[in-house]
Structure formats: structure tokens, C-alpha cells
């Protein structure tokens, strides 16, 4: 095998690999969002986060705007402290609210941001005061049964 042909093939091989890598990074991995330094962090406390995990998406109006950076238990307030990395190209008013939502019935959980009306925008390290925790199925069912029972009781008394 001629040396030049060999180098040509190897060059082609490396180039092919590089193109594939770029495709994975940009077309599939959407590299620009999680790129370094392109995010700012906000904190929110939830009474219950359900199945929310690190790296879960943060969406506003269904659009991906950031990711959950860390989840930990706050021993001072006995609730969950969630830190989120929001892409710097998106700005939210300081009175925005965060809620833990589920995509579809069996889908993954994510944080939904609803923009408020304040003029001031959130900065790195700010806290979201208005939060709504995850719906827990057992509690929902319990509440439903409780209401049903109450309604049923009311019906019976009215029938009598």
C-alpha cells in the first residue's frame, strides 16, 4: 500500500468521524443549550417534587429553557430545594411561578415556569417564591374519594 494512499484513506476516515461527531453534537445533542457559561441559576422550594430528577427539563409554555441542576432536601424548611440552570437567552420576571408537571400520563416530570408581570428580571441565584409541587396520585385519589364520600353523605341527607 502506497504511503500517500494510506494517508488519504486515514484522513478520509478521521474527517468522516469528525463530521459524525459534529452531527451528534449539534443535530442530536443540541449542544448550544448546555454549553458552558450560557446559563444562570435560580432556586425554588417545593413541598413535593414527585419524581423530578437532576437534568430534568425546565420548560416555559412547553419550550425547553433550561435544566434542573440539583435537587436536595432542605433541612431548615423540610421541603425540596431545586436549583435550575436557565439559558441566558431567556429572561423571566421575578414574580414568575414554578410548578412540577408531568408530560403525558406516564411521561417524565419537568419544571414548568409561568412568567409573572414584574418589571424586574430574575438574576443568577434568585429564588422563585411562587411554587406548586407535584401532584401525588395517592393523595389525589384520597382527596377524590373524600370529596365523593362527602358529596354522597350530603345527597343522602337531602334525600331523607
Amino acid at each position: 500500500m502506497n504511503r500517500a494512499t494510506l494517508n488519504l484513506w486515514v484522513g478520509f476516515f478521521v474527517l468522516l468521524g469528525f463530521v459524525a461527531f459534529l452531527m451528534l453534537a449539534f443535530k442530536v445533542g443540541n449542544l448550544n443549550l448546555d454549553g458552558s457559561g450560557g446559563t444562570y441559576e435560580v432556586v425554588a422550594h417545593f413541598d413535593n417534587i414527585g419524581q423530578l430528577k437532576e437534568r430534568a427539563p425546565v420548560r416555559s409554555a412547553g419550550v425547553l429553557v433550561g435544566r434542573v441542576h440539583s435537587v436536595r432536601f432542605d433541612t431548615l424548611h423540610y421541603n425540596a430545594e431545586v436549583r435550575m440552570a436557565i439559558d441566558t437567552q431567556y429572561h423571566f420576571p421575578v414574580d414568575s411561578s414554578a410548578s412540577v408537571l408531568t408530560s403525558g400520563i406516564l411521561g417524565e416530570q419537568y419544571v414548568g415556569l409561568d412568567a409573572g408581570g414584574d418589571d424586574k428580571m430574575l438574576k443568577n441565584g434568585d429564588e422563585l417564591k411562587l411554587t406548586q409541587g407535584a401532584m401525588v396520585l395517592e393523595r389525589l385519589i384520597g382527596q377524590f374519594l373524600f370529596n365523593k364520600a362527602q358529596d354522597g353523605g350530603a345527597d343522602k341527607t337531602s334525600n331523607r
Binding site: L24, A25, V28, G29, N30, L31, D34, R55, R67
Partner: peptide, 15 residues
């Protein structure tokens, strides 16, 4: 197909 993939794949953790 592409957007869901992009939302789920993380450059650091997956690639």
C-alpha cells in the same frame, strides 16, 4: 423525531 431527541440528549452526559 428530531426535537424530542434534542430535548432528551445531553451533550455532556450522553455524547
Amino acid at each position: 423525531f428530531w426535537s424530542q431527541m434534542q430535548a432528551a440528549v445531553d451533550f455532556h452526559h450522553d455524547i
